[in-house]
Write a protein that binds this DNA or RNA. Structure first.
Length: 246
DNA sequence: TTATACTAGCGTCAGAGCCT
DNA sequence: AGGCTCTGACGCTAGTATAA
């Protein structure tokens, strides 16, 4: 796997592309670079990745895949690039419907709740356990499967930056958790909160991707400027040589 | 020191495009 | 058709730079 920073340039239609051995090339970093068959990516330096160049040297090259492989690879990349939604994650975990609980309506007591990252919880309704997603921010929320049932006095284990803490008790302080759930306004509000939360996350990722892409373009500009300077120097030298000999 | 301009980052909305 | 993701546009806020 190599990072965007390592990309030095993309050469179009190389006359003699050098093929390299790549045992487990991850190309996720290239999603925003449009490549076509025959393009070659130059890396700034031999990376500590799995890429091995038969020729060695300061620059490594990665040849773009054949058309069929490229399509397949592109599809895989797209699938990998798209993070599944919270709803999908919960469905895969057997959650079904989900409920959003404002963190302000909950109290976490016990040790190990600082730096909270994920919570797994169990009670009579969850049997094998259910996953609670914590959405940090100015208005933090807990997202839980509705099938979980009564949320008061759930036994939960928190995974924190400091490690796992068992036996923390999640206690509800408001009635929002136990509402009927049938009220249309409540349902609409819940859906809106989920949508906003997902869009917030999407916007964050989009901006990060955009920043990375701009950085890549700036790198390319720098490389091309250097190449241009070098070519001008070479031209001057050749001109001088030609004048001497004529 | 204060007022103003500029920049970066964020959340939200709207619309395009894809997928089921 | 409806739901979803992605992304441009917009407005807001906080931090920084600069001129008066």
């Amino acid at each position: 796997m190599f990072h965007f920073d390592q990309i030095q340039s993309v050469i179009q239609q190389p006359s003699q592309p050098s093929v390299i051995q790549s045992t487990a090339l991850q190309t996720t970093a290239l999603q925003t670079v449009q490549l076509s068959k025959g393009n070659v990516i130059l890396l700034k330096q031999p990376s500590n990745s799995v890429i091995q160049s038969p020729g060695g040297g300061n620059l490594q090259t990665v040849q773009v895949l054949e058309a069929g492989e490229e399509q397949e690879s592109s599809r895989k990349r797209q699938i990998l690039a798209r993070r599944p939604s919270y709803r999908k994650i919960l469905n895969e975990l057997g959650g079904g419907e989900i409920s959003v609980i404002p963190a302000s309506s909950l109290q976490l007591s016990g040790q190990g709740t600082e730096g909270l990252q994920t919570i797994a919880m169990t009670n009579a309704a969850t049997a094998g356990g259910a996953v609670v997603h914590y959405a940090p921010g100015s208005d933090p929320q807990f997202i839980v499967p509705v099938a979980t049932g009564d949320l008061s006095s759930l036994k939960i284990a928190t995974s924190t930056s400091a490690g796992l803490a068992q036996g923390v008790v999640l206690a509800t302080t408001g009635s929002t958790v136990h509402g009927s759930g049938d009220q249309i306004a409540e349902e609409a509000s819940r859906k809106r909160e989920i949508r906003l939360m997902k869009n917030r996350e999407a916007a964050r990722e989009c901006r990060a991707k955009k920043k990375e892409y701009i950085k890549c373009l700036e790198n390319r500009v720098a490389v091309l400027e250097n190449q241009n300077k070098a070519l001008i120097e070479e031209l001057k030298t050749l001109k001088a040589l030609y004048c001497q000999n004529s």
